[in-house]
Design a protein around this nucleic acid. Sequence first.
RNA 1: CGGGGUGUGGCGCAGCCGGUAGCGCGCGGCGUUUGGGACGCUGAGGUCGGAGGUUCGAGUCCUCUCACCCCGACCA
Length: 579
Amino acid sequence: MRMSHLFGRTLREAPGDVELPSHRLMLRSAMMRPLGAGIYSLLPLGWRVVTKVEQIIREEINAIGGQEMLMPVVHPADVWKESGRFYQVGPEMTRFHDRGERDMVLAMTHEEIVTDLVRQEINSYRQLPALVYHIQTKWRDEPRSRGGLIRVREFTMKDSYSLDRDEAGLDVQYRNHWAAYERIFRRAGLAFVVVGADTGMMGGTASHEFMALSPYGEDIVLMCANCGYADNREVATFVRDTPETEELLPVEEVETPNTTTIQALAEFLGVPLARTAKAVFFKGDSGRFVFVVIRGDLEVNETKLRKVAGEGGLTPATVEEIHAIGAEPGYGSPVGVHDAFIVADLSIQNSPNLVAGANRVGWHLRNTNLGRDFTADVVADIAAAEAGFPCPTCGEPLSAERAIEVGNIFKLGTRYSKSLGAEYLDEEGNSHPVVMGSYGIGSGRVTATIVEQHHDEKGIIWPVSVAPYEVSLMWIGAAEDNAAVSAADTLYTDLTGAGIEVLYDDRAERAGVKFNDADLIGNPIRVSVSPRTLERGEAEVKLRSASEAFFVPLAGVLPTLRQHLDEMYAALSGDPPAA
RNA sequence: CGGGGUGUGGCGCAGCCGGUAGCGCGCGGCGUUUGGGACGCUGAGGUCGGAGGUUCGAGUCCUCUCACCCCGACCA
């Protein structure tokens, strides 16, 4: 490609309000342009990258037996009503009417559509197992998109769906995807960890997320350097203190003015946070008041809480709602409250004689005990794991890192096949729901995440496997009477003819402009010729990842590039790194 | 949805106490220059996000509204 004809110009300055490195660099390097909030056009350079990412995904999913297909982006609402999600999912799903006033939705995922196909196409155990996938547009009307391609409203996702006759078959396909995803992200040059995750709105029985570590990630993963444990913070657990066995003391009222925070209370009474119980108030989607008690040194994990409380969503309760159940904000405890669903964290069960609120302004109670002074409807793990907490598998301190979710794998089980009636007949003629899994990778998000992990102050440093072009070629010097122009033209023809992808900067620009654009765009190898290098019959070669250039005879350029490209591709083979 | 911020030429920005819009980059032309974002001359390009109001007069003040960005809530 000749840069003089490339559609899309590099920008010396990015829009001032852009913050993420990938966002800024992909705008500056003419990879993409915004159309609206969370909606982007991919320009030719960016589209080449995304295409390569998708091709890697395609190859690896094909390798585990995937069959590519394409499902629509506009759906009649009927199938979404059958699964129930038409009613469960909130405004992130866009609904509209066609001209016949029929309910329609924009695709936010494709479980319903696949399952609808499965019930038409699959009748027999002989047709299982199967694996289908597509790479298709999704629309999710996020309340807040942010960070360029990391979180958008319209995006492209590879979603595959496994179909099996039983859980054992699902396990195989789940493991296959796990391995395929590891190969995909290694080939794309991403550093990642796999973590256990919440199943969220997808339903299902198990889920893992592939997380690329990045300071701009929206998720937090807890990891153990000692044993390799890793979980999303939403589900991460930790080793609890061993239960205290001290004797239960009588409850004692104590005046505690101006101690509405647990910190203030602990200081006022001179007790550690771990000897206090704090109350947290929520209103569930069902309308129930959810009253949470947890030891003062721990934080509530809302994902865990939603699950044990059986609530789809939780919002903080208002002062009026708190008063209505007989509690007092800042001085709350479950002692004496009514009309509330009480959830106690395990820490409350393990810790006797805690200081808790008296449900009366300015007063607390010493020596409250679960079971004696109040009861809980559920006692469960609802505490958030933090950095430094003991690892649940080996006890060593956990670390916490921010991460970007680049892929996920879900065991759906029969959640959709049952509600939509996708069944097959076994050898005995008995009917069973198809056991399903769903597996997603956002190609745009992967692309942006690669930039997050591979850039410097000058621009992007693409892994060769996804670079827009393998080589940036340019001539340096004047546009007229310059032997470098014809030398570069010849190189362009020869390299392109040899199958190497070349972005040829043939513009009449000064050296600085060309070098800076090449650094910004980030192709892995730069080749330049100038009157100076031609004096010795050489071209200058520089790897984007290296600080120094080197010189090779013109005739040696092609083999030199071949060798370096081969090495780069070999390093991104997808195989696990040698031990 | 809550909090904060920004909307002025393609991009980055200035524009005070209201007086009829400017700078840098980029873009067209001519010339000089030519290895890390050159220079001179010249030119094109703006209903100042939109609507309403105050005023003799609004980019500037007021009200409403739209869009975008950031933080939070939310989210596979």
